[in-house]
Amino acid sequence: MPVSFTVNGQATSLTLDPRVTLLDALREHMALTGSKKGCDHGQCGACTVMVNGQRINSCLTLAVMHEGDEVTTIEGLGSPENLHPMQAAFVKHDGFQCGYCTPGQICSSVAVLKEIEAGIPSHVTADLDQVAFSDAEVRERMSGNICRCAAYPNIVAAIRDVHDHA
């Protein structure tokens, strides 16, 4: 099936088996391997990308469902020479070890700050009209991104740093 979408600002047209997930379209058909396959089940978050500004598990959605969508992957956030502030904060605070969950953590982190700013409440929000940044909000909202190396405190520190300096 043909499908056209924009990835990291570049218009892309692909002809894909309808079974191909958005994750595999990125990884196997566009060689954008920054988005990782940790479980292929929506259980680990390593495949997190942003579609039309919202974070999703790209393994849980088929590529052909994304006609006309705008996809941003870890590669679109920054490059080694020109890191996104969140990427730089992860390096500074050592918010990773093996690096495999890291692109998903970073995509989620960027989206989480926007969600808090937009006043979207979470499970730990006490007052639904007063959504504010806190470590507890970050931990709750980031819990769909597993880091088995468990750099969790450092990831929270990186997100806090970016929030405080935004």
Partner: peptide
Amino acid sequence: IDRIDGPLKVSGRAPYAYEYHQ
């Protein structure tokens, strides 16, 4: 010292075993 492999990992450019398309 910050990890010297950090920029590659946080930008999704560090290739793992399944990812050597080239």
